[in-house]
Design a protein around this nucleic acid. Sequence first.
RNA 1: CGGGAUGUGGCUCAAUUUGGUAGAGCACUUGGUUUGGGACCAAGUGGUUGCAGGUUCAAAUCCUGUCAUCCCGACCA
Length: 473
Amino acid sequence: MANMKITPRDVDFAKWYTDVVMAAHLASYTEVKGCIAIEPNGYAIWEEMQKILDQKFKELGHVNVQMPLLIPENLLKKEADLVEGFAPEVAWVTMGGNKNLEERFCIRPTSETMFSDYFKNHITSYKDLPLLYNQWCNVMRWEKETRPFLRSREFLWQEGHTIHETKEEAEEETKRMMDVYKWFHHDILAIPSITGRKTEKEKFAGADYTLTNEALMYNGVSLQASTSHFFGQRFSKAYDIKYTTRDNKQDYVYQTSWGTTTRMIGALIMVHSDDKGLVLPPNIAPRKVVIIPIGKDEEVLSWCEKINQELNENNIKSFIDQTDKSPGFKFAEAEVLGIPLRIEIGKRDLDNNQITFTRRDTSEKIIKKLEIDIKKEVSELLNTIQQDMYNRALKRRDELTFEAKTIEDVKKIMNTQPGFIKADWCGNPECELKMKEINGLKSRCILEDKMLTGKCVVCGREAKELVVWGIQY
RNA sequence: CGGGAUGUGGCUCAAUUUGGUAGAGCACUUGGUUUGGGACCAAGUGGUUGCAGGUUCAAAUCCUGUCAUCCCGACCA
């Protein structure tokens, strides 16, 4: 393992971010632009995310399926908004072997098309509804500017696609899945995201409306972390997904889709990590504890083994670093990898009848008696770390959430420290564009909360919504 | 897609200005000594200088093109 230097976060945030990705061996660049190799450390985090979310989806009645990677052009074209929204960033397959294809295929940027076409042929009656499907897969969007995990041409995600008998049921599903994402970000990733509805301008191409989960990064930039869309009958009408209703009429289904991506790994870095490297919340860390023996004393090693075994038997994933590196190297390595808790055991500890814990998030050292209930102690400490990480992120989010009553307020805030800016909005897209002239501010989401002044922050006319504005990653 | 920067063993960089045998540190391998914050000694391995052309007796160095990465804008998860 290389002991690579990490650019300080406050010196160059973007450089720091990629340094952490590389130093923690989460991913590396490949010969293919915008397509990263997700390395074992990075993929393990994704597998944890998959495991937790997949279980939740299944508890809520969803089943997993797999649709084709390729989408025929004629099918894609059926929903005009979708085509328009994704046209600039789809990759096309035009040849099969050495022959030109009659009809080209796009490599899926998202799978509404294939799901819709599938649904069309697989339901006939209200008795077939709802269908609650999810797919774990890779998708491709031909981005120009790329960045590991945050914006790559190929990325991994899950996309849920559901169809329902009634509007109410579909809207409930849209909200329910946003609640799942919210729970996942808050309780698992320790990221205090905010949720709300996207404006017309920012919603998913082809959706009636989009719910979004927006997270605030350490540097005050916002990241769309997951979305849940309500399609109404737009796709079902475009793709002819009809069924026979309870009163023997023909109707179109109501549809939703919702997704989240490997981008969340990037969010973990930008919210929690520091100049020493990755910091992972215990609830998502693939390995929660590293045990580092100091010296090669037999008794030291046997204590390491004993503790390791007890933790693993109690479902606390731990491991012993038995490489021939010096202890100092191992400490630094555990830190760059973001392992939440470190246990050091050496002769000195044994002589004093103690073991030493070190928290990754605070670097705090905690001395405990050797005979404690190790699994209880560790699991409590991991919970504390998780909670503290959330609280720190929450505090930072609140500190970087501002209220603006006038456009001057907005400018003043943006000139000092970007963050979430709450401001009333009249609903006019022109005012949205005016905001964009200020350091590229975009509406992140519309909140349900009470408006600040009742007047649009841009034009001063009567406001309709309270909007959170931010700089988009 | 515009503006800027960079590309030399796995990593960080030197040699480019003024063309003349590719070099250092780290990492890696082997042996030994070590072990409480990135250990030490010794001996080794590894590079047709991003790629493709061109100029030249001679190219890492000059010219043209291209690709990639990073930063700043426009577009997006």
